[in-house]
């Protein structure tokens, strides 16, 4: 496909947003620009015909990462006190770093320009799609052909959550995740919180269900569900769960556990993680369903952060 003016403009805007996000002076504005940048990147993915990636990038890359960055910025600002003092001159390391980054960019561009004839795996995927149990080729790769990656990835999320939990203060352990959010009843957020959940739930479930045929899937769906939960809690309609809550923990691990069990069961069908073609369809749907639950729970807990002690008034 030949690049259009739109593509060129999009790339320039992307670079401008990225420049503002990385080089800008104000940290808060940088994060805002980053969120804009994430949405623009999602558009780029649409232009590249990768709708699944576009969804993931919009939901996770721009949305969740942006929320995490903003939350962290707010918490740090509360704790860190003043901004660090400014330095007058640009040190030599800064210039050297700019040069090194430029050289590396040129090197990457060179590598990209000299790539040999493309030899993708489209053919292999298409050939085996029927046996994979999914109609969407991306889902087939994620949950069958390279299911081991996805399984490990769902555990990476849990590892990050464990890492965050271990940063809790000892006296706060077992309490509710994150800060208490006090929202006045009747405020915009509270109203929003009442309307959003039913819609969000529908969208999330649809994304998962559609994922096997059309773009979408556990990660995208899970993100939407997580967002619903987060908003609900921020609206004060629900309280964040306690980290020691049995149900919460069960929700966190159920997806990976079922996926792992399926992987082990596969050795009875021939090898590790084998999904027999006859049953692959519903197996994938089932795994996606439990994974979505776990991913939603994990992502929400990632955003809440570790349990914190009551703030002193």
């Amino acid at each position: 496909m030949i690049a259009s003016i739109f593509d060129l403009t999009l790339c320039l805007v992307i670079l401008a947003a990225a420049g503002a996000a990385t080089l800008g002076r104000d940290a808060f504005m940088a994060v805002v620009f980053y969120i804009v940048y994430g949405i623009l990147i999602a558009m780029a993915w649409l232009r590249l015909g990768a709708i699944d990636v576009a969804l993931a990038e919009a939901a996770i890359g721009a949305g969740l990462t942006g929320v995490l960055l903003l939350a962290a910025l707010a918490r740090v600002a509360r704790k860190a006190g003043k901004e660090p003092a400014s330095a007058a001159s640009v040190p030599a390391t800064t210039i050297a770093t700019a040069l090194a980054a430029l050289v590396i960019t040129i090197g990457i561009a060179y590598a990209f320009l000299t790539l040999p004839e493309p030899q993708g795996l489209q053919g292999h995927v298409a050939e085996n799609l029927a046996a994979s149990g999914a109609e969407n080729p991306v889902t087939a790769v994620l949950l069958n052909f390279r299911g081991w990656d996805t399984l490990l990835e769902s555990i990476v999320l849990l590892a990050a959550l464990l890492g965050i939990w271990t940063l809790a203060q000892d006296e706060a352990w077992g309490g509710r995740a994150g800060l208490r959010h006090v929202t006045r009843p009747g405020s915009v957020l509270a109203q929003f919180g009442r309307i959003l959940p039913p819609i969000g739930l529908l969208v999330g479930v649809y994304l998962v269900w559609a994922g096997s045929k059309q773009p979408g899937g556990a990660f995208q769906g899970g993100t939407v569900l997580a967002a619903v939960w987060i908003v609900t809690i921020m609206a004060g309609l629900m309280q964040a769960p306690r980290v020691a809550d049995r149900a919460l923990r069960a929700a966190l691990v159920i997806g990976p556990v079922i996926f792992l069990a399926l992987a082990v069961a596969g050795i009875f069908a021939g090898a590790f993680l084998v999904l027999p073609p006859a049953h692959a369809g519903w197996l994938i749907l089932a795994v996606e369903a439990v994974l979505t639950l776990s991913i939603a729970a994990t992502l929400a807990m990632l955003v809440f952060g570790p349990p914190e002690p009551e703030e002193k008034r």
Binding site: T93, A96, T97, A100, A101, V103, I104, G107
Partner: peptide, 16 residues
Amino acid sequence: WRVSGLVILALIIVVA
């Protein structure tokens, strides 16, 4: 990190 990070970038260039 400004020094270490720069050194990493430099090493990649040197290796290449």
